Computed example of a mutant assay.
Amino acid sequence: MNQPSDNAGAAASGLPRLVLAVAASERDAFFPPPADELGRLAQVRTVEPQDVQTLAEFSDVMGDADIVVTAWGFPRLDAERLAAAPRLRLVMHAAASVKYLVSDALWEREIVLSQAGSAMGPAVAELSLTATLSLLRRTHRMDHALRAGIDWDTAREIPRAREMSGSRIGVIGASRTGRAYITACQALGAQVTVYDPYLPADDPLHGVAQDLSTLVATSDVVAVHAPETSETHHLIGAAEISAMPDGALVVNTARSALLDMNALFEAASAGRIDVALDVFDTEPLPVDDRWRLLPNVLLTGHRGGATADSRRRAGLIVVDEIQRHLDGRPLQHAVGRNDLSTRG
């Protein structure tokens, strides 16, 4: 149900109109009560994303909106919908990927777009680190075996565990998340290399940069932290997976489309590599999905960035960006048309 905020004098005081289209299940995580941070900046109307899917619903809610705060499930802002929101000047995305949300009409209208994806970087990197440590120590295999009722001695008959210190970690993508992951791995003594074709020559990581074929063939762990773009689709294909050494570990907390998931499954089901996945081609993951059956695979349900801390960081970014917009100051997390080719 649509609910106006309780900031009664907002309209009379000339505050802009803001639509908060974040699902109730996530709203308080971004903007915990009793704080009314958005209400001090604008007249807020709260809606559920599923309640603005049709053009009529969208027009009813967005017709007088100056700002919209989105997260997941908000409809694509195409020309038809933007025509129904003539006053819209700022789209503030509280999550990360904005590709599904924008269209050429957004840029033609010169509507400002910003997103709070940087808030999720530390959380995703931490889950990736957790998965890496679990795979190295074979925690997932032991857990599967003991829960399946396998006897103690047989459950302990797993490949010898490895420590992070001295392990060769190959990172695909020097993104914000990738860099946070690299810092954590290096702090634990890992030997890190990185593949990122957009890495500037003066970047501190340039000294550990490698080409993709070398990285996958020489890494104990391959961790994926690149965005999903046309260039990165199946970046790690059958040839790259085949080139990985026996016993290699793959960690993907980015997007499933970056890997050929069929080729990855073949290698994992053959027992040649171990895998940790937080993202899948089909989500929610079906209860009978093939990945659920492999004891050498660690699965989490696309929750890498969903910590209490990251949600609160994102909420603070949203508030700060809106304040900057209203003050006429440059936004710190603005996204331009050209950014979409290198961002997810």
Rank of each mutant, 00 (worst) to 15 (best):
N296L: 04
D51M: 00
P286S: 08
A308S: 13
E283C: 12
W107Y: 14
K99P: 01
F58E: 02
R160C: 10
N7C: 11
T229Q: 02
M120K: 12
V171R: 00
A94N: 03
R27L: 12
A254Q: 09
V222N: 05
A223E: 02
T54I: 00
T132P: 02
H233P: 01
T282C: 10
P295R: 03
A145L: 03
Q332T: 10
Y181V: 11
N7R: 14
V98Q: 00
L101S: 03
L215A: 09
A248H: 05
D66T: 10
Q323C: 05
A125W: 02
G39I: 09
T214K: 07
G14H: 05
F74Y: 08
G207H: 07
V222A: 05
L18E: 10
S118V: 12
D104T: 07
E228D: 13
M142A: 09
A42L: 09
A217G: 02
S310K: 08
A145H: 06
V19D: 04
A190I: 05
R179Y: 05
L277W: 06
S165C: 12
A23P: 01
L331H: 03
D327E: 14
G73Q: 09
R87S: 14
A8I: 13
W152C: 02
D278V: 09
L285W: 11
S103D: 15
A125Q: 00
A267F: 06
A174K: 07
